[in-house]
Nucleic acid binder design. Structure first.
Length: 287
DNA sequence: CTTTCTGTTAGAAA
DNA sequence: ATTTCTAACAGAAA
């Protein structure tokens, strides 16, 4: 579930907590989540220092001393929870319960820093992964797999129109395509379409320029507002302290099938399937 | 009980 | 070249 706003929240949390800390231990309980050989992975991480934390789309990039970059993808149910030595941190698989400490049964990889604080990688469904790469490999991955970032200054209307030209797919599929626009997942794709008043199943090449412009504005606005609310906790997502994000209170269509539309106060939100994904929209105010 | 569904995406199939 | 479908997994819901 973590999409751009959730990943951004985790990165900014971790930036305050682990930069300049040295990793002195790794426990790997599920080897299949590591995309290097275990020997290589451990060798390149142990005794290295965290120098920076960033992200591209939903991919977390932890820069280490030396030519090493730890890439972490949380996929659907992954969590990264940081805990000081001896503290009880909320969090876990479902909505965080205060009594739930780390590690839990889904804590598959655990990093320990020199001050004894720890970073837990939890993942119920085990879709997430970690890989350590060098600078060249990092740039290959970023260049080949990730499109424009909706929060950056180069996300201009011109670039957006450029990105939309000659696309024969639906706007929903396009918003979900990480190679075209990075970081949007199923929740925000539906919210963006609703905010823009466009049905998710509309074909991109049939949209008017005015509609494309609305989608551009809505993409920027929804993502920005969701970051401000520290993301959306629909089921598994928690921040680096194990706390929920509050944008769930601002969702207008996702998970609201059967409810009256908050925007037009007339339509009833329906749930259907578009681009192979559960898709929510208001048949009255989305055209 | 079994079947279907779920926030992602890489890779195969079309 | 693009777009669509499915598998990877575990658990909740139907």
């Amino acid at each position: 579930m973590p999409e751009l706003p959730e990943v951004e929240t985790i990165c900014s949390d971790l930036r305050k907590k682990i930069i300049n800390k040295r990793i002195i231990g790794i426990v790997i309980k599920k080897k299949n989540l590591i995309r290097n050989t275990i020997l290589q992975f451990k060798k390149r991480i142990i005794n290295s220092k965290v120098t920076n934390i960033s992200r591209r789309g939903k991919l977390i990039i932890i820069s280490l001393s030396g030519d090493n970059y730890l890439l972490i993808h949380l996929k659907m149910t992954g969590q990264l929870i940081y805990q000081q030595k001896g503290s009880i941190t909320a969090g876990g698989h479902s909505l965080p319960r205060p009594e739930q400490g780390m590690p839990n049964k889904y804590s598959h990889i655990i990093f320990t820093f020199s001050d004894k604080s720890q970073l837990f990688f939890n993942d119920m469904r085990q879709f997430g992964y970690m890989i350590i790469v060098n600078r060249d490999e990092l740039h290959n991955i970023l260049d080949n797999s990730y499109g424009i970032e909706p929060g950056l200054s180069n996300f201009t209307l011109d670039n957006w129109l450029d990105v939309l030209s000659n696309r024969k797919t639906t706007i929903k599929a396009l918003l979900l395509n990480q190679k075209i626009i990075a970081g949007i997942g199923n929740i925000y794709a539906d919210e963006i379409c609703h905010n823009a008043g466009i049905r998710p199943q509309r074909l991109v090449n049939k949209l008017t320029v005015s509609e494309k412009k609305r989608l551009w504005q809505s993409s920027k606005n929804i993502i920005k507002r969701a970051i401000k609310k520290r993301g959306t906790t629909f089921s598994d997502y928690v921040d680096a302290d194990g706390h929920s994000g509050s944008f769930v209170d601002h969702l207008r269509v996702f998970g609201r099938q059967g409810e009256k539309c908050n925007k037009c106060k007339v339509g009833i939100i329906i749930k259907t399937r578009v681009a192979g994904r559960g898709t929510h929209y208001c048949p009255n105010c989305q055209k």
